[in-house]
Design a protein around this nucleic acid. Structure first.
Lengths: 150, 150
DNA sequence: AGTTGGTGGTTTGACATCAAACTACCTCGG
DNA sequence: CCGAGGTAGTTTGATGTCAAACCACCAACT
């Protein structure tokens, strides 16, 4: 119901904010990516980190957590399995499910890597005060939670 | 040289802010994407929009504006050319350069589409007050401008 | 039991994305 | 004039990404 013609001035401000939002996200992510081992992608890190903190999950749950399609996860998980960092086990009770868990190597790998990445992200945000970080959380949360499509 | 151990509390806040920043960007972008014609990708829109507002550019300039690799632009531009929305013209003075410009169809297309997308973005940001939008700009700008790698 | 519908996962096809190797071209110094 | 180095763009190979079609399995209902 809202918002036919909010006015061009309003649009300009919104466009500007949107561009800066994208730039900030891309910018931080690209610098975080640089701290990862060369052959580990951001998405792969995301999978390992999620398993590390939440324990074994099936692929669908992983996809939901990471906001990715399940088709996507099939590929990423396959690559991580090739690399020997995770295991896939078909659940006996319901053969549709596949439980993804960290391999011992994967566990050690992410346990060592995660603190470095966390420290890196903290550094990236060090240019903001605590109050500013909190305010950023508040504003981005509003945007993120917005109902899908008006 | 700063910033060994900023402390775990600090890290938690930074991680939280980072996640919310990513979610907000993804969330808004995915909803903006829904307003585009089904066969137009966000990147393709970005190229058309840039040409629309800045006029003809060579591929390298486009890549810089859009923060993409020049290899990437080669593909995106090729797809847009296939769709008949842009033209590629080798510059006579320096044969290395290729000028990308909107075709008449592309010009009409983006002229009609852009206002819709701008309005959509304004709607997405309507949950923030003007002051909040300004604050978001200020904070994200700080993050985006951070020196590449410490 | 058998069909029917829903759910988890895979496959396919198209696009995006980058790094790195490569081509074509320009320019500058000898 | 010619070779060296630099720049614009393309190609290649790997990954990510999604929608849509597909397969396998479960559950529920008749």
């Amino acid at each position: 119901m809202p918002t036919h013609h909010l006015g061009p001035a309003n649009e300009i401000v919104a466009l500007d904010a949107y561009i800066k939002l994208l730039r900030a996200a891309e910018s931080v992510t690209s610098r975080v990516h640089q701290t990862l081992p060369a052959d580990l992608t951001v998405t792969q890190f995301g999978v390992l980190e999620t398993l590390f903190h939440l324990g074994p999950l099936c692929q669908n749950q992983l996809a939901t957590k990471l906001l990715k399609s399940s088709a996507n996860l099939t590929l990423v998980v396959a690559n991580l399995e090739k690399a020997g960092l995770i295991k896939r086990v078909r659940q006996a009770e319901d053969l549709r499910f596949i439980t993804i868990s960290l391999s011992p190597r994967g566990q050690a790998f992410i346990a060592k890597l995660f603190p470095k990445v966390a420290a890196r992200i903290a550094e990236e945000f060090a240019s903001l005060t605590a109050a500013e970080k909190a305010e950023l959380c508040r504003l981005t949360k509003k945007l993120g939670l917005r109902a899908p499509s008006t």
